[in-house]
Amino acid sequence: MSSTRQNINNYKELLEQYINTMDEASLYQAEQYSKASIQHNVSPDKIIEEHYKALVELFPNLDERVKASFQFLIQTMISYSVNYQQTEELREKQLELKTEIDVAANMQNTLLSTDVPKVENIDIGAKSVPAKLMNGDYYHFVQDDEGNIGTAIADVIGKGIPAAFFMSMIKYAMESFPEDRMYPKIILELLNRVVERNVESGMFVTMFYGLYDINKHEFYYATAGHEPGFIYRSQIQAFEEIDAKGLLLGVKKDTKYNQYVTHIQQGDMIVLLTDGVTECRSGDRFIEREEVLEVIDQYKEQSAQNIVDNVYKYLERLQDFKLRDDFTLLILKRNS
């Protein structure tokens, strides 16, 4: 075996050895030869060329038709190698791109992260999971000096990277607003202006904004075309849809939004969501909104975070563990 190293440089000798002995050692050396070829970037057509040259030298009287067949094979392999290399490099590039998107997705998570407020009497749960790498949903919590909780839930029409960029803009616009008691109507009107000015037409965002007064337990809200949420009324032990209307952000300059208010009783629960929760599909069947409510109802005695986690698990399983749309679900529960 000591001759392996030098032999792999001589394909003709290797071939001759094999033809004479038909032994396994030669075949093993052929394997070494192919490995060395890959290391030296030798394309497949070059190996066939080596083979052909060796064959002609070993068998000078080779049938012309066999020679012709080799010309044919070499031509085929040259073209194959050229195209194969192109595909190969394309794959590498894809991988590179995916790495970059991973970095962007991580960055997005950091940029858009929001702390869930810890408030006595009110238990808050939140879960947001993107269908692809980047999330086109967004939720946000903010507390003013008195401890009142502002909450936003939003969904960009569209998914992926453009949607994610868009959300960052919304977040920074919201952070630039003053921190004192901001009413939902005002926030949506300000945001509408930001979106309308900064985004080309065709990009819209739906948003629901709520302000929970922690002393009076009044919930003020306004919507910009967002998927209606629900309020679980403990007195009647039933969910009612949050009734509100408003134009999507970015559609029309100077849009005015209506503001609504409702009283939250002890044991009531505010459920805010995006259409990724209600429009999920199981096979070719769209699930009904009621089905989501049934799941929430089933877990309503648990903590808000447990409820949202369980709803997510339920829908994830229903969809065969492949989300088709970004999923965001927030629950605010008044305990006492």
Binding site: V82, Q85, Q86, T87, E89, L90, K93
Partner: peptide, 21 residues
């Protein structure tokens, strides 16, 4: 001249291959 451009953009199919050959 980037590999794979041809598949997305049309123009210039195969130029990287020609360059290599």
């Amino acid at each position: 001249l980037e590999d794979g451009y041809s598949t997305s953009g049309g123009l210039g199919a195969g130029l990287p291959g020609v360059k290599r050959l």
